[in-house]
Each structure stands twice: as structure tokens, then as C-alpha cells.
Simulated scan of single mutants.
Amino acid sequence: MDSKNSSPWSFTLPTLWLCLSLCTTHLCLGSNTLSANQSLSGSQTLISSGRNFKLGFFTLGNSSHSYIGIWYNNIREQTVVWVANRDNPVADRYSTELKISGGNLVMLNDSRVPVWSTDLPSSSGSSSTVAVLGDDGNFALKDGPNSSVTLWQSFN
């Protein structure tokens, strides 16, 4: 192919595709599972498999503080059903993250200080521990992706 007929997009489209695929491997938006090597921050969310519930960071009213919680996905007005850090809101959700660390779900603020945790004994989980948002709105920490062993859950 000569340079007159080559498209200026020949390099940028594959590069764009690569960037998008790398972005989605960090945390697949729309996924219902948070793995030990992933974190959730900013506007990233988990969505239950039947798309009934969403988990992520949110603010209430005109507040500048953020919380991590679960709300109905298909209702226009955000209706929150569970909040993790009700007593410890964070100032900046873009520098705050929710991740699995030491077998626990941990929310770290912008200074990397834990503001909320499931507070399980560190021997409870393994490197394959995952957190799954169920279609019933329950967020559960499981011993592994296919495990029936629940280490912690947002509600019974």
C-alpha cells in the first residue's frame, strides 16, 4: 500500500481498541464481580447479572461527600438500599477505592487510610476471594469465584 492511499486511522483505531480493552480489563463495567486484583473508584460500578442492582460511589443531595452503596439500577430516581461507609463519608470518590485486601473488602480514602472494612480475620479469605453483587441486591464476599462459601455479606 502506498502512502497516498493509507488511512490516517490505520494506526489510531487499533490503538483506541487496545486502550478500551485495557480499560475494561481493569474493571469490566457492567460486571457483577470484584476480584482480588481489581479496585472500584470514581464512576466505576458493578451491576448485578440481571441488571437489577448497581454498586458504586454516590453522593446525597448537594453534599460533596461520597459513599459506596447499592441502589436499584432500573429506577430513574436513585433509591439506595445499602451503604457501607454511612458513618465515614469520603471527600473525593475519584481518589478513594474499594478493593479486596487480606481477605477483606476495604475502602481506602485519598490518603490510603481505611475508612471502612468488612473486618474479617485476615485468614478468612484467599488470593481467589471475590465480591459479588447478587440480583437480590446482596453484596457478598466469597472464598472464590465458584465458591458457595460466603465470608461476609451486606445483608441476610
Score class of each variant (00 low, 15 high):
residue 123 S to D: 15
residue 110 D to R: 11
residue 133 L to M: 09
residue 17 W to Q: 15
residue 94 Y to R: 08
residue 91 A to T: 13
residue 100 I to C: 08
residue 39 S to M: 07
residue 35 S to V: 00
residue 146 N to K: 10
residue 63 S to P: 01
residue 8 P to T: 04
residue 145 P to C: 08
residue 59 T to K: 04
residue 111 S to L: 10
residue 2 D to F: 08
residue 16 L to A: 14
residue 51 R to P: 02
residue 81 V to S: 03
residue 98 L to R: 03
residue 95 S to H: 09
residue 48 S to K: 03
residue 127 S to T: 09
residue 137 G to I: 03
residue 120 L to T: 05
residue 114 P to T: 09
residue 26 H to L: 10
residue 115 V to I: 10
residue 50 G to F: 00
residue 59 T to F: 02
residue 119 D to G: 07
residue 1 M to C: 10
residue 82 W to Q: 06
residue 146 N to G: 08
residue 39 S to K: 08
residue 35 S to K: 14
residue 74 N to L: 05
residue 113 V to F: 07
residue 127 S to I: 05
residue 2 D to I: 04
residue 131 A to Q: 05
residue 85 N to R: 06
residue 155 F to P: 05
residue 6 S to I: 07
residue 87 D to Y: 09
residue 62 N to T: 08
residue 28 C to L: 13
residue 24 T to N: 13
residue 9 W to R: 10
residue 149 V to T: 15
residue 115 V to T: 08
residue 82 W to P: 01
residue 1 M to V: 12
residue 105 L to Y: 03
residue 55 L to K: 01
residue 70 I to F: 03
residue 66 S to R: 00
residue 77 E to R: 05
residue 59 T to N: 10
residue 18 L to T: 12
residue 7 S to G: 03
residue 107 M to Q: 13
residue 79 T to N: 11
residue 46 L to A: 04
residue 67 Y to D: 01
residue 28 C to D: 11
residue 14 P to L: 01
residue 2 D to K: 05
residue 132 V to E: 14
residue 112 R to Q: 13
residue 116 W to N: 12
residue 70 I to K: 04
residue 117 S to W: 07
residue 95 S to N: 06
residue 74 N to T: 06
residue 98 L to D: 09
residue 108 L to M: 05
residue 121 P to Y: 04
residue 70 I to S: 06
residue 59 T to W: 01
residue 116 W to V: 11
residue 145 P to V: 02
residue 89 P to A: 04
residue 130 V to W: 02
residue 89 P to F: 04
residue 24 T to A: 07
residue 136 D to P: 03
residue 109 N to C: 04
residue 152 W to V: 09
residue 127 S to W: 06
residue 136 D to K: 02
residue 29 L to I: 06
residue 63 S to R: 00
residue 42 G to E: 12
residue 3 S to F: 12
residue 79 T to G: 00
residue 17 W to E: 15
residue 84 A to T: 02
residue 112 R to Y: 11
residue 99 K to R: 14
residue 153 Q to K: 15
residue 76 R to D: 14
residue 84 A to V: 01
residue 36 A to S: 15
residue 30 G to Q: 03
residue 130 V to T: 12
residue 132 V to L: 08
residue 93 R to M: 10
residue 144 G to K: 03
residue 71 W to D: 00
residue 23 C to M: 09
residue 150 T to I: 15
residue 80 V to W: 01
residue 105 L to W: 03
residue 58 F to E: 02
residue 78 Q to K: 07
residue 91 A to D: 15
residue 87 D to F: 06
residue 47 I to T: 15
